[in-house]
Amino acid sequence: MAYVTVPKDLSKVKTKVAFNLTKRQIICLGAALLVGLPFFFLLKDSAGTTLAAMAMIVVMLPCFLFAMYERHGQPLEVVIRNIVQTKFIRPKERPYQTENLYTVLERQRKLEKEVSAIVKGTSTKGAGSRRRNKA
């Protein structure tokens, strides 16, 4: 009796369209054929069959990679975008910064103390200067 494994997470199951390939894979492989075959036939007469075949493989390779490569469920363009962002766009050092509640409260207490000292200082200065002026 044959056993079939059933994945627990059905969202990761991809629907196959034809030849056990997904729609994305069929489109990318079709694009590879549209680019690679004319390139091969144009180079075959001038460069030779072997060199033309190698050049065709190099030209078709990005399409194959976009069709087949996946890492952690992400296609190649998402992986490339993430690499470019982390290497070139985002800052290299991202320091971990927290705001300590106790330092905020301490700073607020010092400010309130300073404000109350200023208020008390101006009211006593003003009263003292008035007394001196009257005398």
Rank of each mutant, 00 (worst) to 15 (best):
Y3W: 09
V4P: 02
T5G: 06
K8I: 06
L10T: 13
S11T: 14
K14G: 01
T15N: 10
V17K: 10
V17P: 01
V17G: 02
F19N: 06
N20I: 08
L21Y: 12
T22E: 10
K23S: 04
Q25R: 10
I27L: 12
L37T: 13
L37G: 03
L37Q: 14
F39C: 09
F39T: 14
F41I: 04
L42F: 15
K44T: 03
A47L: 12
G48E: 02
T50C: 05
A53D: 05
A55K: 00
M56F: 03
I57F: 13
V58C: 12
V59D: 06
C63P: 05
F66Y: 15
A67K: 05
Y69C: 04
Y69F: 15
R71A: 11
R81Q: 09
I83W: 07
K87A: 13
F88L: 14
R90P: 01
R90V: 06
P91C: 08
P91K: 10
K92Y: 07
R94A: 15
Q97T: 12
Q97G: 03
T98H: 15
L101K: 15
Y102E: 09
Y102W: 09
Y102L: 11
R109N: 06
R109T: 13
L111R: 13
E114W: 10
E114P: 00
S116Q: 13
S116M: 08
I118F: 15
V119P: 00
K120Q: 01
S123N: 08
T124V: 09
T124I: 06
T124K: 05
T124Y: 05
K125H: 02
G126S: 09
G126Y: 03
K134D: 01
